[in-house]
């Protein structure tokens, strides 16, 4: 639990036509080799946002080693479901599978629990877009907008203020970026500190996960007036935008 409250923040916002996830990277530096981080639609080799299945992406906060193990477990669980039922796993069921595992580690002696909180952003035909949160004890719950990691109290109250019931993905993206820029320690937002992903539907109504690569993140930040250009006053509102 302690590790999670120090971890980089992860924010998720649900909308009618998509889900948005953003995460703050803590391990940075110019010597860190990021050439492996391709982004795109395969797996997401970032530090904090992963593709679990074609219909679910997740953001993690806590002990990275534990998180990697859980991500692997989730991917296996999703493929097992696809194998058995020839259907993509429903989002809540995937969250449940992981929580069953997490809960097990709180009950049996000798082992420590997974020090990881996760956000699951997914789509299934029964309940459309969904956003879930799970903690190390194995509790999980569904949210319209939530966050995990350091400063999650501040971010939650910002989300509470600005979340609207019928928000669109575009507005959700803007909301997430704004909250991110207000809660992160650093003064400027940039791809080296930020991970970003969306889950929407494509033309054939199939879920489409997009994990942004560094160049796309910088372009997105630029578009919302939060990019590096405004060095020093990144937190200032973009022209025409109201203050949070």
């Amino acid at each position: 639990m302690e590790a999670i409250s120090h971890a980089g923040i992860v924010i998720g916002v649900l909308s009618k036509d998509g889900v948005v996830l953003a995460a703050e990277k803590k391990v940075t530096g110019k010597l860190l080799d990021m050439s492996g981080a391709t982004g795109g639609s395969y797996g997401g080799s970032g530090e904090k946002i992963f593709l679990l299945n074609s219909n679910v992406i997740s953001g993690v906060a806590g002990i990275t080693a534990d998180a990697n193990s859980l991500v692997n477990y989730a991917r296996q669980a999703a493929q097992r479901h696809l194998f058995s039922y020839n259907e993509d796993i429903p989002v809540e069921l995937l969250a449940q599978r992981l929580c069953d595992l997490k809960q097990g580690y709180t009950q049996y002696g000798g082992l420590r629990p997974f020090g990881v909180s996760l956000l699951y952003a997914g789509y299934d035909p029964h309940y459309q877009f969904q956003l879930y949160h799970s903690d190390p004890s194995g509790n999980y719950s569904g949210w319209k907008a939530t966050c995990i990691g350091a400063n999650n109290g501040t971010a939650t109250s910002l989300l509470k203020q600005d979340y609207k019931e019928d928000i669109s993905v575009e507005d959700a993206i803007e909301l997430v970026l704004k909250v991110m820029s207000k809660t992160m320690d650093s003064t400027t937002l940039g791809s080296e500190k930020l991970e970003f992903a969306t889950l929407t539907l494509d033309a054939s109504k199939q879920p489409k996960a997009k994990i942004y690569n560094p160049a796309e993140i910088d372009a997105l930040l630029q578009k919302h007036g939060l990019g590096k250009k405004e060095e020093g006053d990144a937190a200032a509102p973009a022209p025409g935008d109201l203050t949070l």
């Binding site: 391709t38 795109g40 395969y42 797996g43 997401g44 080799s45 593709l51 692997n72 991917r75 296996q76 493929q79 097992r80 696809l82 194998f83």
Partner: peptide, 14 residues
Amino acid sequence: VFRYRVNMYTIKEE
């Protein structure tokens, strides 16, 4: 079986 294994390969190897 092959769909399962190819999907796991793709997601892990990116």
